[in-house]
Design a binder for these strands. Sequence first.
DNA 1: GTTTCACTGG
Length: 626
Amino acid sequence: MLMIRSAKALRSARPRFTKTAGTLRTSLFHNSERGFSSSDRNLSYKERLRNGIVGIKKDDAVALFQTMIESRPRPTVIDFNRLFTALARTKQYDLVLDLCKQMELQGIAHNIYTLSIVINCFCRSRKLGFAFSAMGKILKLGYEPDTVTFSTLINGLCLVGTVSQAVELVDRMVEMKVIPNIITLNTIVNGLCLQGKVSEAMALIDRMMDNGCQPDGVTYGPILNRLCKSGNTALAMDLLRKMEHRKIKLDVVTYSMVIDSLCKDESLEDSLSLFNEMETKGIKGNVITYNSLIGGFCNAGRWDDGAQLLRDMIERKITPNVVTFNTLIDSFVKEGRLSEAQELYNEMITRDIEPNTITYSSLIYGLCMENRLDEANQMLDLMVSKRCDPDIVTYNILIKGCCKAKLVDEGMRLFRKMSMRGLVADTVTYSTLIQGFCQSGKLNEAKELFQEMVSIGVQPSVVTYGILLDGLCDNGELEMALDILEKMHKCKIDPGICIYSIIIHGMCNASKVDDAWDLFCSLPLKGVKPDVKTYTVMISGLCKKGSLPEASMLLRKMEEDGIAPNDCTYNTLIRAHLRGSDICTSVELIEEMKGCGFSADASTMKMVMDMLVDGGLDKSFLDMLS
DNA sequence: GTTTCACTGG
């Protein structure tokens, strides 16, 4: 793999940097993210503020505040502002507002900084009215609102989605001779992006640049994110180049967004070259960059390269996390490589990475695919014992596994177990079980379950209806299927082409090919466009009725309508013509099918073999098929 | 000395 080779070459070109365990530990203890110990509480508030209050927890903050209030001489408002800022950074806005009020009641007055913090907290809590009141208080107290005060309020307006008012406020601040700065601009750009107004955001930046304001990485972040999330990867790439051209420093986050977007677009080669470009500039990929790449490789069917990337990141001291392993495990499982997925799970445990619900659900899915239901159930017990709660997806996977193994009663047992654990069955749960009952020929149970979901207010989806109608048709209850179709019309549920295909199929199976044909012909009037499945089902019905010329004509019509036949369409027609001993047309159809890149399926091959044995076909026919 | 803005993975 080219990329990995080049990554290795890069690595050897850079100086190695190894942190010892000792320095790591020291740096950890400098960090105030840990809680306060009892000895901390004996420190003076000044020392505590100085020791660092980053990431302070609620209880510690309240205790510290209490100490400050009781201290004599009183701390200055500046010290309180420090505490409030730290708390606001942990998003505890209500607590900040509460403590601000208490401080005031203790006779310590707000200054303009405190009021800016208060405005920010109100804005972040989407309480714009109170934020503007605080602004009024600033004016009443004779303070002059500055760029920060205005920017904070502008951000508040952007957060509630009134970006036009935010822009008006910029005009107001300019009138008041307060100069907007880069943060004011970034705030407005973000506000525009929140509203999906990417073009306006870009235009604003250009206008600002004309006025001598230089954008930074923050300016473009929301735009780039928006472009990537809306699938405009090419535009995101263009913007990345524009940023480079404008000499804006790019970081790993910026690159990762575009790399992820390229991976999602299945442009793996482009994402790899961007990754290499980033690393060549000395910007090292992080776990998120690697997770995107691993996902991209797995999606492209390059599972082993994905696993190799995991090795590569470990070697480079980029620590994989639960997402890394989940991506690989899920991908290996879906490819039927369960044992490798299980090895990855074991490696997670070895590396002290805690599996989560997604990890276990993937493994349970893998076991279900192999009909290893006992082990799947054991896995469920294992995750519960490890305090990892199964969710509705986990249960849906297991229930589907039961139904697939024709153990629908076992599926019902899980359904009840799940409900007892407080999980509410959803449309997927009910649909799966209804399908299980239908496939076991237990139509009454299927109907009852359908009734139950409707009566408790779980909305059946088109998929649910499809499953039920298919089950009814397959079990000789076409009339009831038609009744339900009627009900769907009455309830204004758009059946969609899948449902019509199922009904047409049911009609053909019930030897009502003429009814099926009428329904088929009425589809355009209903505004529904037949797809390849609808055509194939109808062709199959005509063949069954013995109307081979009509069936062949329908093949031509679907091509005219721009619907490409698939292998199933061809095989259906070929078998029908073989059955009718029309060897000539069969040969023509086979040639045509081969030209489309399809081949004879198992039942066609079986029919050919049988006919060879009976002498109904020449041996040369077989050569043509291969 | 204290206040404002942003972005990445399942």
